[in-house]
Design a protein around this nucleic acid. Structure first.
Length: 882
RNA sequence: GGGUGUUUAGCUCAGUUGGUAGAGCGUCUCCCUUACAAGGAGAGGGUCGGGGGUUCAAGUCCCUCAACACCCACCA
């Protein structure tokens, strides 16, 4: 690396330039590559694979940042850290993209045929597969691209087949006709978790079904009159006296005249609508159940495109009509027929396809399912017995609640892009064989359906490690993974399925900890979405503020409780300013290092301030380690921010400027400055990787280290603990602060130096003498003289009370006595208030009896301290008044 | 209908076992002090949503009410 003159570095940190070159440096040196043969303890993680169709958004930025912090921290803490990246083939989403593309050529996938269409989709996928991971490089993600995987690659496909066949053989996968959530736009079944409910303003139509062979009718309420042709019965509650005489009778469906019976079923709610329900087993899940109980044959009247079926039950004028158009026509027909008695407004929940927001059509069809209950047992046990821990804990309840009421998982999708179901049918006999490979391609054809994308992502933690081969080096070294980091929105979709599949097929929980963070929202707390136009593009933020600024800001907004995070563009100024602070403080230190290339501090020469900052750093290191290990990442950011800015920059660096003037301690001060900077950078590195790496490489070193990201992470050391000195240092701070306070109160410019006289109590005098140089420099004091504590404060003085001593500042022509008296009285009132509340406590016998001794002594000591100060202030006030 | 979360300074939010309320931003003063004005120094600002309880002591534990947010289940 060419020699860089620190003085030539810009005074404003240039994030963009730095980040690109630093990331390249890491990649070129293969810093992210994990070694399966390493003797170090493993720390492993898999990325929640983003969709290949995906574009980087703020949710990724948060998720990837948190993962990267954990990986970098463990890598520096002596673990062999592996983070596997990859992407999800995203069945429906990707297929939709390619379909849109070929639509421009005027083609549908059916025009191309399955094979050609898949070719096109692979082509598209291969072009875009790496794109989102490339974007994630801008986040500084230290994942191992040499191990990059894809949920539809050869290895994952093998894993899927293995799992499918085994589950089938165990009887845990079955095929059957059930009501599924059908998306007429995607033209595929979707699972329960892919369905979202929205409240919609609809109508409740009351339709009269005349009784057969006698006068009278039964009135039925429905929200979906277009399903009328699929009715197989009218159901009433068996205990409903209104209808008891009608049960068993026959009614006639208006418009078609088909005859159906009136039956009794518990399912019917007497108080809703008219208390009578039409039963349409082919198009409603509850009706399907009722139909099954009463042995009715379902009648399909709506097809997979959401259009009225061209069948005998449906009047021919409606054939092929869209369901909503048909509804209008049917209502009109019923009106004409005088069968429609009433229309009421009715608010109800309508299921929507999560992907395209199309209203789903409950449709009876033949699909593949995974029987979840037997699998859920172990998945529940693993969380209950602590093999898997959720952070924060409350998600455990959420997970368990879902698992304990688990429903079978519809895994077949009527799409082409994805893992084709490994079931084969004999062309003639129709006999079905489930196997990894086609037993006889001459005579058998494969099931045309594909599997739900989440089926393959459910295997991700072990399919990426080589499964079904359990003998690969990666599998042996890195499986199971240590932590899984994700948002709560995919606990059911993904986390739950990885747990069930992992336990079933590897016998191990796929990860020990599930760290759930909040979701990113806009400044008003609304979900970010393209349609709302309230999205913030992480790349734009990175360009504007820098990646480290983005990471630091996000991290500092993470709470342990995993609250959602509201962000706006300006919030990132916080991280940018901090990065700039790091940059400039580092520049100062580097400019004053005179080439000092080691941290060999001479401990016999440490000053009070040196010991204080070392003690502080030591405690910060301890806190940071504990915090990260307990997933208190936001807290980590706060601790480091406070230490670096408020302790190191605002106090120690300022003090060091004084110490650097003193030749006898100059070198040691340089070493302390260097050491604390070095360690601070390491502590900050997991959160702000680029700037720390950049600065760290500028620090002169006796031997060339490769990178800060491979350096040791600082830990607490007993040898660096100076609690006594740390407390003594408080006197320095207190003195300087009160002098600054006086300066401000009397409007004395920083350019004007003043003299002070310290009325020191005996045991504090030597301490004041020891810290004179700090006081002079940092409070802009010219001369310091001393007087006995008992001596009266001279006239025309502003006074500061510090600890038990008084400091008098002669202000000749400047003093406004009344202002000074008011200032002191205000301070006195505050002290008195505190003292009284403390005295009330100490005088309470119950407090004395119950409170810890430590607290009692502490309280008493504080009261004594206040008394001393009060006396000092009172003396002052009376001398001012006279 | 069931569940979870939130309510603390003007704004956005921290606050680990109960022990004298914190940060960032914003506001007001002063300052280009030779790392940094994306900076430095200082100030002001809160009866911790309402009510009740436990305790010597409650932002923190218990009960209750209210408002908001979200999740699950779904009634034709």
């Amino acid at each position: 690396m060419p020699t860089i003159k620190i003085e030539d570095l810009p005074t404003v940190y240039n994030a963009g330039e730095t980040e690109e070159s630093i990331y390249k440096f890491w990649e070129e040196n293969e810093c992210f590559k994990a070694d399966a043969r390493s003797p170090k303890k493993p720390y492993s993680m898999v990325i929640p694979p983003p969709n290949v169709t995906g574009v980087l958004h703020m949710g990724h930025a948060l998720d990837e940042t948190l993962q990267d912090i954990l990986v970098r921290y463990h890598r520096m803490s002596g673990y062999e850290a592996l983070w596997i990246p990859g992407t999800d083939h995203a069945g429906l989403a990707t297929q939709a993209v390619v379909e849109r593309q070929i639509a421009k050529e005027g083609l549908t996938r059916h025009d191309l045929g399955r094979e050609k269409f898949l070719e096109r989709t692979w082509e598209w996928t291969n072009q875009h597969k790496g794109a989102i991971l490339d974007q994630m490089k801008r986040l500084g993600a230290s994942f191992d691209r040499s191990r990059e995987r894809f949920t539809f690659d050869e290895g994952c496909s093998q894993a899927v087949k293995e799992v499918f066949v085994k589950l089938y053989e165990k009887g845990l996968i079955y095929k059957g006709a059930y009501i599924v959530n059908w998306c007429p736009r995607c033209q595929s079944a979707i699972s329960d978790v892919e369905t979202e409910y929205e409240t919609e303003q609809g109508h409740l139509w009351e339709i009269s079904y005349p009784l057969k062979g006698e006068s009278g009718a039964i009135i039925v309420a429905t929200t979906r009159p277009e399903t009328i042709f699929g009715d197989v019965a009218i159901a009433v509650n068996p205990t409903d006296y209104k209808y008891s005489e009608l049960i068993g009778k026959t009614v006639v469906i208006p418009l078609t005249g088909r005859e159906i019976p009136i039956i009794a079923d518990e399912y019917v709610d007497k108080s809703f609508g008219t208390g009578a329900v039409k039963i349409t087993p082919a198009h409603d899940p509850n009706d399907f159940e009722v139909g099954k109980r009463h042995n009715f044959k379902p009648i399909w009247v709506i097809d997979g495109e959401g259009k009225m079926k061209a069948c005998g039950e449906v009047p021919s004028n409606l054939h092929g009509l869209d369901r909503y158009e048909a509804r209008k026509q049917i209502i009109k027909m019923l009106e004409d027929n005088h069968s429609l008695l009433r229309v009421k407004d009715h608010e109800h929940n309508v299921g929507k396809c999560q992907r395209c927001n199309t209203t789903i059509e409950p449709l009876l069809s033949e699909q593949w399912f995974v029987k979840m209950e037997p699998l859920a047992k172990e998945a529940i046990a693993a969380v209950k017995d602590g093999r898997i821990k959720f952070i924060p804990e409350r998600w455990e309840k959420n997970y368990l609640g879902w698992m304990e009421n688990i429903r079978d998982w519809c895994i077949s999708r009527q799409i082409w892009w994805g893992h084709q179901i490994p079931a084969y049918y004999h062309k003639v006999t129709g006999e079905m064989v489930v196997a990894k490979e086609n037993p006889d391609p001459e005579n058998y054809i494969q099931d045309t359906d594909c599997l739900d994308t989440w089926f393959s992502s459910g295997l991700w933690p072990f399919s990426t490690m080589g499964f079904p081969n359990a003998e690969t080096e990666d599998y042996k070294k890195f499986y199971p993974t240590t932590t899984l980091v994700t948002g709560f929105d995919i606990i059911f979709f993904w986390v739950a399925r990885m747990i069930t599949m992992g336990l079933e097929f590897t016998g191990k929980a796929p990860f020990g900890t599930v760290y759930i963070h909040g979701l990113i929202r806009d400044e008003k707390g609304q979900k970010m979405s393209k349609s709302k136009g309230n999205t913030i593009d992480p790349v734009v933020i990175i360009d504007k503020y820098g990646c480290d600024a983005l990471r630091f800001t996000m991290t500092s907004l993470c709470t342990y409780g995993g609250q959602d995070i509201k962000i706006s563009d300006e919030r990132f100024e916080y991280g940018r300013n901090f990065a700039n602070k790091i940059w400039n403080a580092s520049r100062f230190v580097l400019m004053n290092l005179d080439g000092v290339d080691n941290n060999d501090i001479d401990f016999s020469k440490l000053t009070l301030a040196d010991k204080w900052i070392l003690d502080k750093l030591n405690n910060v290191a301890k806190e940071v380690n504990t915090n990260i290990e307990n997933y208190r990442i936001g807290e980590t950011a706060h601790v480091l921010y406070d230490f670096f800015w408020n302790s190191y920059c605002d106090w120690y660096v300022e003090i060091a400027k004084v110490q650097l003037q003193d030749e006898s301690i100059k070198l040691n001060t340089q070493r302390v400055l260097r050491y604390v900077l070095d360690m601070s950078l390491r502590l900050l590195h997991p959160i702000m990787p680029h700037i720390t790496e950049r600065v760290w490489q500028l620090i002169p070193k006796e031997s060339e280290f490769k990178a800060i990201m491979l350096a040791d992470y600082p830990v607490y050391q007993d040898a660096l603990s100076y609690p006594t000195e740390a407390r003594e240092m408080e006197l320095v701070f207190e003195t300087i602060k009160s002098l600054r306070n006086v300066r401000q109160s009397f409007n004395i410019a920083m350019s004007i130096n003043f003299d002070i006289k310290i009325h020191a109590v005996d045991d504090e005098k030597p301490v004041f003498e020891a810290i004179e140089s700090y006081i002079k420099r940092m409070a802009k004091v010219e001369n310091i003289s001393y007087a006995p504590a008992s001596a009266p404060v001279p006239d025309k003085c502003a006074t500061a009370v510090v600890s038990a001593s008084k400091i008098a500042i002669p202000l000749e022509n400047l003093i406004d006595f009344n202002a000074e008296i008011a200032r002191q009285e205000k301070k006195l009132a505050k002290l008195e208030g505190e003292r009284k509340s403390l005295e009330g406590r100490v005088n309470n016998p119950k407090f004395v009896a119950n409170a810890p001794v430590e607290l009692i002594n502490q309280t008493k000591a504080r009261i004594d301290e206040i008394l001393v100060q009060e006396k000092a202030i009172n003396d002052l006030i009376s001398s001012l008044k006279s």
